[in-house]
């Protein structure tokens, strides 16, 4: 009986130690923004700034279930499972600090060039992005430019990489790099490296 109690206490302690702390959405954003946590990478080349964020399955599940009312653990788990098998990023392309220009029109001389720029941003980003890990490469399953309802200088792209052969092939990657071969602003190839351990450290969000 005494042994049972000790085991129960140890198990309880371990489960508490292993469970993720739950934070508010505001705290999650703060944690995500901090580059030292490893899920947010930035790069500047010339006047163009790149900002790549790796989104956690927990956050994506939160977004999906936001405003759904009662969320059962089963529903949450099933949605979370879907997101766990994919890798989702948000790439923001904008002017570097101290620069003020709209990236959709920078370097554009006429309407034809503007139309070409919009075509590239809307439909050709997938060609320029690639996920790499241990010599393997994946092209994005989805790349979509977010709609902007206002005067903004930057543009955001939601990028999703999905498994191509085995369901868990992306979950198993310990480190992976998103490559962006910039044929739009001619800044060359930019790499954004991420570790699985950083994703695992992401705090859970209070639903």
């Amino acid at each position: 009986m005494k042994g049972f109690k000790i085991y129960t206490i140890i198990l309880l302690f371990l489960s508490l130690a292993c469970s993720k702390s739950e934070v508010s959405l505001k705290d999650y954003y703060e944690w995500q923004e901090d580059e030292s946590n490893g899920v947010h990478k930035t790069k500047t080349v010339g006047e163009i700034a790149f900002d790549m964020k790796l989104l956690s399955p927990d956050y994506l599940t939160y977004l999906e279930l936001k405003g759904e009312g009662t969320v059962t653990p089963q529903l949450k788990d099933s949605i979370m499972k879907f997101y766990e098998n994919n890798l989702t990023f948000v790439l923001t392309i904008g002017p570097a600090e101290e620069s003020h220009f709209d990236i959709t029109s920078v370097g554009i001389k006429n309407y034809e060039e503007y139309a070409e720029r919009m075509k590239q941003l809307n439909f050709e980003m997938a060609e320029l992005l690639e996920l790499r890990s241990d010599g393997k490469k994946w092209k994005p399953a989805i790349v979509e430019m977010e709609n902007i309802y206002g005067l903004e200088f930057h543009r955001k792209f939601n990028i999703v990489f999905s498994p191509e052969e085995k369901t868990d092939e992306l979950v198993k990657l310990d480190k992976f790099t998103v490559m962006f071969d910039d044929e739009i602003f001619d800044t060359g190839t930019s790499s954004f490296g991420f570790l699985k351990s950083s994703l695992e450290k992401t705090p859970a969000i209070k639903f």
């Binding site: 080349v45 010339g46 060359g188």
Partner: peptide, 17 residues
């Protein structure tokens, strides 16, 4: 020329940082 400009810009931006 394009390749060289891209790479040099990457290097210069990093040197500034």
């Amino acid at each position: 020329q394009k390749m060289t400009i891209e790479v040099v810009n990457q290097v210069l931006s990093f040197v500034e940082k």
